[in-house]
């Protein structure tokens, strides 16, 4: 082994530890009961926290809310952002940049500030403390992210294929079905995953717009942590991390396992 190679192997080991240690910590804590300083290894192991997570009706509601919000944010966000990004990309430079600026602002606004503003508007609509209200709030940053994705995609888009199809007599619907959607498979998959994750991880917007009445998994994890229930919080944190990893993994596989450039 050359020194250069062993250095590289060493850095790979270090990176592996760095990336996986926090997740491993969650796994162990989630099954460790009454695990206090200074013991390095838990003395008693039980699955109570996991059982509670799925047995307790309010946790189940939170989980359901989270899934419904994330899936609908992904679907609606992608369905809206695709035509928006495309229209912006086909426009003049000025329009394109303005849309990009708006989209990034939606992403960049601190959720605490955006939430405080949206809270009042959602209440005015009579949607305070409802899942629909929270969904509308989640849609704001999600739409920002996804518009940026499709803006990037369509800025590099080759229009000649569409034009050729149109010349050959393919109607709008046919063009989308047989040409555009297959070509857009990768960005759409990535957009769905991104939309899902933006909503799935959301805390501040849910808290403010949902006003405590809409429970989601991230809020539950926070509540368990603030109740000193570390074991349950760890189980909840994994219940958050695992589907997120799964969604990203699936989207990578479906997209052909090539890295994407987002934002």
């Amino acid at each position: 082994m050359t020194p250069r190679l062993s250095m590289r192997a060493l850095s790979v080991v270090a990176l592996t530890l760095f990336a996986s240690a926090p997740l491993a910590m969650l796994v162990v804590t989630s099954i460790a009961r009454g695990w206090f300083y200074p013991s390095v290894v838990p003395s008693s192991v039980d699955g109570g926290a996991w059982a509670e997570l799925f047995r307790d009706a309010s946790h189940r509601t939170a989980l359901l809310n989270s899934v419904v919000l994330a899936v609908s944010t992904a679907l609606v966000g992608t369905a809206l952002a695709l035509p928006l990004g495309r229209a912006a990309a086909l426009s003049t430079r000025g329009v394109r940049r303005s849309v990009a600026l708006l989209a990034f602002t939606a992403v960049a606004l601190p959720p605490v500030a955006l939430g405080a503003g949206l809270q009042l508007s959602v209440l005015t609509l009579g949607l305070g403390g409802t899942v629909v209200g929270v969904f509308l709030a989640h849609l704001v940053p999600a739409l920002g992210y996804l518009t940026l994705v499709f803006l990037g995609v369509f800025t590099r888009w080759d229009l000649r294929l569409e034009e050729a199809a149109a010349t050959l007599g393919a109607g709008g619907l046919e063009r989308w079905r047989h040409l555009m959607l297959p070509l857009l498979r990768r960005p759409i998959t990535e957009a769905l995953a991104l939309g899902f994750l933006v909503s799935w991880a959301q805390v501040a917007l849910t808290l403010l717009v949902g006003g405590g009445a809409v429970r989601t998994l991230p809020l539950d994890v926070l509540a368990m942590l603030q109740a000193g229930q570390d074991q349950r919080a760890a189980a909840g944190a994994l219940a958050l991390a695992i589907p997120a990893l799964f969604v990203l993994g699936v989207s990578r596989v479906a997209a052909g396992n090539t890295p994407a450039v987002v934002a």
Binding site: Q119, L123, T124, G128, G129, G211, A213
Partner: peptide, 13 residues
């Protein structure tokens, strides 16, 4: 306070 300000007549809780 926010619920009342928003003008909605009925609150949540």
């Amino acid at each position: 306070t926010v619920e009342t300000q928003s003008g909605a007549k009925v609150g949540t809780a």
